[in-house]
Each structure stands twice: as C-alpha cells, then as structure tokens.
C-alpha cells in the first residue's frame, strides 16, 4: 500500500443539510473495513483553494440552493485545476441540491438563471413545492441503492447524458425513470439517507475507484458480514416501499 486515499470534504459548514456529513463518516468507516486508509481534509472557506492536486475524492454533501452561485464561483476560480483533476480520473461527487453546481444551470423560481460548472449535461428548475419521498434505484455496479430524496428543483438530463441510476421506486430526477447523472468519475445523485451509510457497497465502490486511479493496492472489498445491519435495513424498508408501490 502506497498511501492513504485523499478525500476533500468541500464546505462542510456551508453544505450542511439533510445529515450529509454521514456520507463522510461512512467513507471513513468503510475504508477502515476495507483496510484502505483515508485522509480527509475539510475545505472550510469559499476563499480557500480546493486541493485538486492532493485529492482523490472531492465530496459535496447536500446544501441549500441559495449557496450555489458562490460555490460555482469558488470552483471557477480554479477551473484549470478542476479540469486537470477530472482528466486524471479524480472523483467529484455532489449530493442532492449541491448537484446543481455540476450542471449547466439552475432556473430559479423568479425566472433568473444561475450558471453551473457544466460538467454534467443537466438543467435544474426550481420547483414550486418540495417533493420528499423514498428513493430506490439500480446502478451500473450491479447493486441497488436505497435512500430518500428531498427535491426542491427538477433535473432534466441532456440528450446523451447518462444517469447515475434507474429508478425502481421514487421520483429521481423528474419522474422520468432517471436518477442522478454520471460522466466518468463526476457523479450527481439525489440520494440522501445518508446514501453512503445506508449503502456501504457504494462507499466501497467509490473508494475502490479512487484507489485504482491512485495506484493504491492491498485492500479488500466488503463481504456480507460487513453489511449485516445495512442489509437488514434494506430489506425492512423494501417491504415498506413495496406496499406503497402496490397501493399506487
């Protein structure tokens, strides 16, 4: 093993809602189970540089839409470094409303448009009312993910933009069967839960991808003994969701 996996936790105080910090706790804990050490750095202030050269994973937990312009501006300030980071296969993950930062733009309720970074081909439109529900979707990794979503903006993917998953239950991006968006290692998901806590296989997958890109070896993937409580949670909530599906 050469080194730890480097995780930049971007703006933990600003992107502070929906228990999002649980995702970072999960990455920390799952990495221990995998025998894959991580080093996590908090990027506190908008004025401070994001450590693109250092990071293997850059993670934005769920935040309020109002903060999006300032966050886009902070990333734009380091546009060259951001593009190099994505080119080298760095992981950039944004959850819930923070995903608006990665898209083409956000149409606000007053009709004004706020530009995003354009890393994922998707357009956001602020909703008149909030949509909150469970979310269950399949992924390209061969496992399903379960969590919740609180949506205050609809997301429309551009033609050719791959989703992160396909919904089994829930609204996902806008009720069209797509959930989130993914291009290379740039990922947006609506999934809360926190997603990485409730779906440790996803956390392990993210860490594995980071390890492969960084050339780090000597770790193991999770087995069923590592996820006993999470699997029981999945089964219990599956019953609850299936009841709702049958009622529809």
């Amino acid at each position: 093993m050469d080194r730890a996996i480097h995780i930049a936790w971007v703006y933990p105080d600003i992107l502070n809602i929906h228990g999002g910090r649980g995702d970072i706790m999960a990455l920390n804990k799952i990495s221990e189970k995998m025998g894959l050490p991580v080093e996590i750095k908090r990027c506190e202030q908008l004025s401070e540089d994001i450590p693109f050269e250092w990071a293997d994973i850059i993670y934005m937990t769920s935040g309020e839409l109002k903060c999006m312009p300032e966050i886009v501006e902070a990333f734009e300030r380091q546009r060259d470094s951001l593009e190099k980071y994505i080119e080298k296969g760095g992981i950039l993950c944004a959850v819930s409303s923070s995903g608006a930062v990665l898209g083409n733009g956000l149409e606000k309720d007053d009709g004004s448009i706020v530009n995003g970074l354009g890393l994922l081909d998707m357009m956001w439109k602020e909703r008149e009312s909030v949509w909150g529900d469970d979310l269950w979707f399949s992924t390209e990794y061969g496992f399903e993910i379960m969590g919740n979503q609180i949506q205050i903006a609809d997301v429309k993917l551009g033609e050719g933009q791959e989703p992160f998953g396909k919904t089994i239950y829930g609204r996902g991006n806008c009720g069209d069967g797509t959930e989130g968006a993914k291009k290379g290692n740039v990922i947006f998901t609506n999934c809360l839960g926190p997603m990485m806590i409730k779906n440790p296989r996803m956390a392990a997958e993210l860490l594995k991808t980071a390890a492969e890109t960084a050339g780090v070896t000597g770790y193991r993937m999770l087995d069923e003994n590592d996820t006993v409580i999470e699997d029981k949670s999945f089964e219990l909530i599956k019953i609850f969701i299936e009841k709702k599906m049958n009622e529809e």
């Binding site: 703006y11 933990p12 105080d13 600003i14 502070n16 910090r21 970072i24 706790m25 996590i40 908090r42 506190e44 202030q45 908008l46 004025s47 935040g63 309020e64 109002k66 903060c67 312009p69 300032e70």
Partner: peptide, 17 residues
C-alpha cells in the same frame, strides 16, 4: 470535533463559525 458542522452565512453564504 472533526465532523462538526455549522451553517452557511445568511448574508454572504460563506461558512459561519
């Protein structure tokens, strides 16, 4: 507390301490 979180500033959307 490494995992402690605060909130965004309602005036400028920076990080409050």
């Amino acid at each position: 507390d490494f995992f402690a979180i605060a909130m965004p500033c309602p005036m400028c959307h920076g990080a409050l301490t």
